[in-house]
Computed example of a mutant assay.
Amino acid sequence: MKLVAAARLLLAALTLWPALAFAQQKGEPGRFDHYVLSLSWSPSYCEAMGPRAEPAQCATARPFAFVVHGLWPQYQRGWPESCQNPAPYVPEPVLRSMLDLMPSRRLVLHEWRKHGTCAGLDPTAYFDKVRRAYQAVTIPEAFHRLDDYTMVSPGEVEAAFRAANPGLAPDMIAVDCDRRRLTEVRICMNRQLGFTSCDEVDRRACRTSRVVMPPLREGAGQR
């Protein structure tokens, strides 16, 4: 019986390995199928990270609701990452210009190195595309600001985004969560930044029935 169990484990590992290797391959700049625009619910990040959170994002003087986590080149299955090493330099004016959407210098540089280098664009063009992708999505009015902890279902959040964005179908969006908090909304976009289907992203969506959205920090004001 032990030999049978070991054989099954080996078979499972061999079956899974190609998918994992494909997902994590370095990739070639400009060779991908679509983008994922990841919008992070900033209060969840701040609460989960606690004292390790980025001060620029989580200090009470800097309130944020949904922020851009990243614009990620994707394959239909898996994704490329870190396509240029070392990554091209991000000009300081470009970096500073993104801090209203991506409220951390560290986040901007990390996203460029890991994902932006796979887009086949220079830093200026890539971050311009990030901004245009964000502007192409309407954040539902209900999520511009929350003043108290709010319980939601992932389906309710998805429905709100779909209602605010005509043409956004169920297989083009995924709501993500940790064990108790809503963490991100991920929207799939083609190279022209129109909405597109993405079955793999949709399949990885949050399956928890109810999650909490922490509020913006008290006294922080509105972005």
Score class of each variant (00 low, 15 high):
112 W>M: 09
223 R>L: 00
85 N>W: 05
169 A>N: 05
173 I>D: 03
123 P>M: 08
154 P>C: 13
75 Y>S: 01
140 P>W: 05
216 L>N: 02
138 T>K: 10
107 L>E: 03
101 L>Y: 13
199 D>G: 15
185 V>D: 03
172 M>F: 03
218 E>G: 10
179 R>Y: 11
45 Y>T: 01
137 V>Q: 05
178 D>Y: 10
122 D>T: 01
61 A>W: 02
84 Q>G: 03
172 M>T: 02
186 R>W: 06
181 R>N: 13
115 H>Q: 10
89 Y>P: 02
77 R>K: 03
108 V>R: 10
194 G>F: 07
183 T>N: 03
223 R>E: 13
32 F>R: 04
141 E>Y: 00
68 V>I: 15
100 D>N: 15
108 V>L: 08
60 T>S: 14
72 W>Y: 10
170 P>N: 00
188 C>L: 08
180 R>I: 15
96 R>S: 13
149 Y>A: 13
10 L>H: 12
125 A>H: 07
160 A>V: 10
121 L>E: 15
142 A>G: 05
150 T>K: 13
25 Q>T: 11
40 S>N: 04
5 A>Y: 09
118 C>L: 06
222 Q>V: 15
62 R>E: 01
200 E>Q: 13
46 C>I: 09
131 R>N: 01
182 L>V: 04
219 G>L: 06
134 Y>C: 00
178 D>Q: 01
190 N>I: 08
50 G>T: 10
102 M>K: 09
164 A>Q: 04
60 T>V: 15
75 Y>G: 02
150 T>W: 05
85 N>E: 14
119 A>H: 00
206 C>N: 06
146 L>K: 04
28 E>N: 02
86 P>A: 12
130 V>P: 08
172 M>D: 01
9 L>F: 04
24 Q>Y: 03
82 S>I: 00
114 K>F: 09
207 R>H: 05
21 A>L: 10
60 T>E: 14
113 R>A: 08
63 P>M: 00
175 V>N: 09
46 C>N: 01
107 L>S: 06
106 R>Y: 09
1 M>I: 14
34 H>Y: 11
11 L>H: 07
148 D>K: 14
143 F>M: 11
75 Y>W: 05
23 A>Y: 06
100 D>Q: 14
57 Q>K: 14
3 L>Q: 11
158 E>L: 01
57 Q>L: 06
169 A>R: 15
184 E>N: 05
195 F>E: 02
6 A>N: 06
207 R>G: 04
160 A>I: 10
35 Y>A: 01
155 G>E: 14
149 Y>C: 05
207 R>C: 01
48 A>V: 07
3 L>H: 10
